[in-house]
Computed example of a mutant assay.
Amino acid sequence: IALAFIQTTLPTGLIGFLLIVAVGLIIRNYLSYLNLLLVARVSAVIITVIAIISIFTVLAYRMGLSAGLTITFFPMIILAWTIERMSILWEEEGPKQVLIQGGGSLITAVLAYLAMNNPWVRHITFNFLGVQLILMALILLLGNYTGYRLLELRRFKPIIDDEKPS
């Protein structure tokens, strides 16, 4: 999504992303009444995303908005899975969680966009490929960490206090 923002510019990309996901969620809500299997449902959402992007592109062209034509750079499969995940989350957790998690994903995409557009970051990552390997090693280390988090110490403090002799 961040790469699509680079092609579309950030404001156009944000508007396009929000429009596609909003319309996709409305259509996905209808698909849930059909009780389709997962593969059929996701296939229908992918086709829907393609149709939404096509319609928005034609409308932008007819209205003379050349920036709207760049919406075709959005990754259709990722948008379809985003809509599917948000729809399931809406059914299970409610709209508040959809806004929280969807907003978090959007903030992450914007931060990635800003990092990719930074000339210094672009210079370091393209000219020194070993930096990417170091970043991957750090991510793998963080992914394997199973120790206590600092929040756990505060969470279990009342238990420790109860066990101490007075």
Rank of each mutant, 00 (worst) to 15 (best):
L14R: 04
L14G: 00
L14I: 08
L14E: 03
L14W: 02
I15K: 06
I15F: 07
I15V: 15
I15D: 06
I15M: 09
G16A: 13
G16M: 05
G16F: 03
G16N: 08
G16K: 03
F17W: 12
F17E: 08
F17K: 10
F17P: 02
F17S: 07
L18I: 11
L18V: 13
L18Y: 13
L19C: 14
L19H: 05
L19V: 13
I20K: 02
I20E: 01
V21L: 05
V21F: 04
A22M: 12
A22Q: 10
A22C: 12
A22T: 15
A22W: 12
V23D: 05
V23W: 07
V23M: 08
G24E: 01
G24Q: 01
G24S: 06
G24W: 03
L25A: 11
L25D: 04
L25N: 03
L25F: 04
I26N: 10
I26R: 10
I26K: 09
I26H: 10
I26Y: 07
I26V: 15
I27C: 01
I27M: 03
R28S: 11
R28H: 15
N29K: 10
N29T: 13
N29H: 13
Y30N: 14
Y30L: 15
Y30W: 15
Y30V: 15
L31Y: 09
L31P: 05
L31E: 05
L31V: 05
L31I: 07
S32L: 13
S32F: 12
S32M: 10
S32H: 09
S32V: 10
S32R: 09
S32P: 00
Y33F: 15
Y33D: 13
Y33Q: 14
L34C: 08
L34T: 11
L34A: 06
L34Y: 02
L34F: 07
L34K: 03
L34H: 05
N35W: 04
N35V: 09
N35K: 05
N35A: 09
N35G: 09
L36W: 02
L36Q: 00
L36V: 01
L36F: 03
L36T: 00
L37M: 15
L37T: 11
L37N: 14
L37Y: 15
L37C: 14
L37R: 13
L38Y: 13
L38G: 14
V39I: 09
V39Q: 09
V39G: 08
V39K: 06
A40R: 06
A40Q: 08
A40N: 07
A40F: 09
R41A: 08
R41Y: 05
R41G: 07
V42A: 04
V42C: 02
V42P: 00
V42D: 00
V42W: 00
V42F: 01
S43L: 09
S43M: 11
S43C: 08
S43G: 09
S43H: 06
A44H: 02
A44M: 06
A44L: 05
V45I: 15
V45K: 01
V45H: 01
V45Y: 04
I46E: 02
I46Q: 01
I46T: 08
I46H: 02
I47D: 08
I47F: 14
I47V: 10
I47M: 07
I47H: 08
T48M: 03
T48D: 04
T48S: 06
T48V: 03
V49W: 00
V49A: 03
V49T: 06
V49K: 00
V49R: 00
V49D: 00
V49S: 00
